[in-house]
Structure formats: structure tokens, C-alpha cells
Simulated scan of single mutants.
Amino acid sequence: MKKTIGIIGGMGPLATVKLFEKIVLNTRADSDQDHPRTIIDSNTRIPDRTRNILSDGENPTNELIESARCLERAGADFLTMPCNTAHYFMEEVLKEVELPFIDMIKETVNTVKKEFGSSKVGIFSTDGTISSGVYTKVLQKEGIEYVLPSPQSQKAIMELIYNIKKGQYDNDLTRFFTAIDELHSQGVQTIILGCTELSVAADMYKFPDSVNYVDALVVLAREAIIGAGCDINS
């Protein structure tokens, strides 16, 4: 029996749209009925996750719980969430619902390990994701060596992320591409796109092919399709 996907969204809205799009595009289907039923709560009231982790920004946990409960009431069989940084808060959220949760962080690291072994990886994400250690802790547990961008490169990454959140899509990617070259020069062969706005950027712009990219949003979409009992496009 097929299951219904629940998406805790709104962080940001376009990243939420992109997850649903990737679920549709990655599903092998001959008709509407072959696709998974999907319930989306694009809760744009969820406070900024990075601001809470780094400073005195409002805690997003209560709104995340509200979205999880909303999806549970609506009939979702399991939860997904297209926001890497927000995974930092999910332990508390999941105490308030009875639904299982697909952990995008763990599944992304599993994909890295499966496809690229223990080769050195880079992490492109928000300051909040880096500070919280949601990726680095899992990579360390799996014995995968990682490299973080320099402060200057991290600033360029954050600028691109928040420009996309603002709806600014005509961006000069020179400094962002320099950040890629910087990690490549340190022996990085694979970069995790660990922010869903970077997943949006990967669809909008042509990234240099000097390294491999593991897009956390694509990983989540494919795991959601499997979880719903549907088939993945090869």
C-alpha cells in the first residue's frame, strides 16, 4: 500500500517547491496515480534557523511542531523537511508526533559514502548548519574526512543563499565559484550541497565540473519516493 508524504516546508518557499518538483521528476510513472500523494505545509512563519543558532533569534521549534502536527492531522504517513539547518531542532519536534521522519542529513552522508567512499568532501551550507554540526557530526561518525570553506568563501555562500531567499536570482557567482576552486585545491572531490537554496542554485546556474556534487534535496526526494512505495526513475 502506498504511503502519503508530508513536507514541512516554507524554509524557503522555493526550496519547498523544488522538493515537490524533484519528487515528481524522479518518480517513474505512467499516470497521475503512479505518483505519491504529497501533503505540503509551506509554513513561512517558521523563524530563521541560523539566526537562532548563532544569536538570539526566535526559536523555530514551536512552529516546526505545529507544521508536523498539521501534516499528521492531514493524513501524512511520514515527514520530510527541505531545510538542512532545521534538522538541528528535529529531535524535539519528533517527540510531539507519532510519524517517522526521513533524515536528509543522514541520507545525504549515506549517499556520499555509497557513491564516493571515504574520499574527502566539502560542505556548502549555512552558518547555522556549520555551527550546529549537523553534517560534521555524521561525517565524523562515518569516518569521512571533510573540509569547510574559508571565512571569505563562507560569506560568499551565505550571500548566494540569502539572495535566493530574497528572490534575487541575477547573481554574480564569481566568489561562489572561487569557493569551489578553493576546496578542490585542498583535495576535495565531492561537495555536499547542504542548503536547499543551493539546490535551487544548482538548477539555475551551471556549476563548475571540477568536483562532484551531492544535492541533499535530490537525495531527500528519492528517499521520499521510496518511502511512499513508489518507483524511482533510473
Rank of each mutant, 00 (worst) to 15 (best):
S199N: 03
E197Y: 06
F177V: 04
A179R: 06
I161Q: 05
I164F: 10
I192P: 00
L183P: 00
I157F: 07
K155W: 07
I191E: 00
P149N: 12
L160D: 09
D172L: 13
L183Q: 08
I164Y: 05
G194N: 04
I164G: 09
N171G: 03
I144P: 07
D170L: 12
Y205M: 01
G194L: 04
S150K: 05
A156G: 06
A202H: 13
I180H: 02
I161N: 04
A156I: 10
K155F: 08
D209M: 02
S185M: 07
Q168R: 11
S153F: 03
C195H: 10
L160M: 13
I144D: 08
T196L: 13
D172F: 11
V200R: 00
I161L: 14
Q186A: 11
T178M: 14
A202D: 13
I180N: 02
A201Y: 03
Q186L: 15
P149H: 11
K155E: 15
M158L: 11
F176N: 03
I157G: 06
Q154S: 04
E142R: 06
N171Y: 02
P149K: 14
D181R: 04
V188D: 01
R175I: 06
L148A: 05
Q152H: 09
K166S: 15
N171L: 15
F177D: 10
I180T: 03
V200N: 00
H184R: 15
D170C: 07
V188I: 05
F207H: 01
I144C: 11
V188E: 01
D181T: 01
H184P: 02
N212Q: 13
N212H: 15
L183M: 15
G194C: 04
E197D: 12
P149C: 10
V188W: 01
S185T: 12
D181C: 01
D181S: 13
I144E: 09
S199H: 02
P208Q: 06
K165V: 11
P149I: 11
T196W: 07
K166L: 14
E142D: 12
Y146G: 08
G187Y: 12
D181A: 04
E182M: 08
V200F: 00
I192L: 15
G167H: 10
H184L: 03
I191Q: 01
E145P: 05
T178N: 15
E145L: 10
F177W: 12
Q152I: 12
T190Q: 04
K165F: 07
T196P: 08
L198H: 03
C195D: 14
G194R: 02
Q154L: 08
D170M: 11
E197P: 07
Q152K: 14
T174L: 09
A179S: 15
S185K: 13
A202L: 11
Q186W: 07
I157C: 08
L193P: 00
R175G: 03
I180W: 02
G167Q: 10
K155G: 06
F177M: 10
L183H: 03
A179C: 06
N212F: 05
Q168H: 11
N163C: 07
D203H: 04
I164P: 05
A201H: 07
T178Q: 15
L173D: 09
S153K: 09
Q168V: 14
I191C: 01
D181V: 00
I144N: 07
L148G: 04
I157L: 12
P208K: 10
D172V: 13
Q152S: 12
D203K: 03
A202T: 07
E142W: 04
